[in-house]
Design a protein around this nucleic acid. Sequence first.
DNA 1: GTCTATACTTAGATAGAC
DNA 2: GTCTATCTAAGTATAGAC
Lengths: 190, 190
Amino acid sequence: MRDSILAAAVQLFAEYGYHAAPLRDIARIAGIQAASIYHHYPNKQALLVEIMATQMQHLNQSLEHILQEHQDSLVRLDAAIANHIRLHTMYKAEFFIVDTEIRALDPENRPYILSLRDTYEQLWQELLRTGMEQGIFRTSDVKVVSYAIIALCTEVATWFKPEGRLTVQQVIVLYRQLITHGLLLPDQSV
Amino acid sequence: MRDSILAAAVQLFAEYGYHAAPLRDIARIAGIQAASIYHHYPNKQALLVEIMATQMQHLNQSLEHILQEHQDSLVRLDAAIANHIRLHTMYKAEFFIVDTEIRALDPENRPYILSLRDTYEQLWQELLRTGMEQGIFRTSDVKVVSYAIIALCTEVATWFKPEGRLTVQQVIVLYRQLITHGLLLPDQSV
DNA sequence: GTCTATACTTAGATAGAC
DNA sequence: GTCTATCTAAGTATAGAC
């Protein structure tokens, strides 16, 4: 039941937003009365925090694992892009909540979630900085590039449909190409 | 007063989200009572629609202008990137609302706002398709690339600070570089 | 562990005076 | 054009029975 409630919350938070999703509706989808939710969670906010924390920890662990497993910057980049897009398409609703409901966090919960997001950005920045120092990646502003790549791969979740025109793997290939080689054809390079 | 109310709404919708921003607070910032808002706007939703429609029309007009003025695909791309980033940093709060509160739109208003967004995407797709046909841009999935570039340039608004480390112009140069040439150094290209 | 009933608060919106 | 006063609905959360 605890999981059913959380699944219902994920669905409604993603569809209508945290503040627009009534606890009564979450309860209805989970098949119980609103009051019964309070046996499993202390309040509505706790649902939001658990959804966000779970996904961010998952994301961080997977990227840490990639950095430990691989030393080659190009392999790391490819794996990190694929990992980000796979998780964001697989847990589409959950990550949509992570990306849009930060401001719905109570002041006492916000720092924790932001620190998890910060950790993820730092892992990416480590990957990028190493690649630039090795002369594999073009030297640029590490922070800006990390924000850019993360935003790019995150946005996939907003339009991707599992039954759509493209498979996840095809999307990964397209994004990888864009991130590594850019839009211009080589002969146009300066 | 009409503009004061709208400015207050922009501030609070951006900071707390549409549903979490009480009309009474909007009124307080505008310096009037909540009931007085209804002399200027029929309801809260009308504030949201006006904010979104105004910005999207502005964005569309500027890109249409660029496509009319320039024929060279590379010039068009540079101008479109700069235009998007400039508007998104100049009207940061307004565009943040456009990008996060689509789901707060009532069913009768949503199609209109989505059609404006659709127009913008189509203008970008026209730009990209032409460049690919001319052999200036790498051939790829036009829709996916348009989503990617728009997401990339939109995200700038989430972290950019006017008094921060980088100027708008510096950010534009960095993003332009990333979009056109990608992350890898040329000798690493396949 | 789930229920019914309800307390408490706050929201958007309206009525009518000035 | 703005106010005070108020309506009505809806939200989160609690109390206490089963």
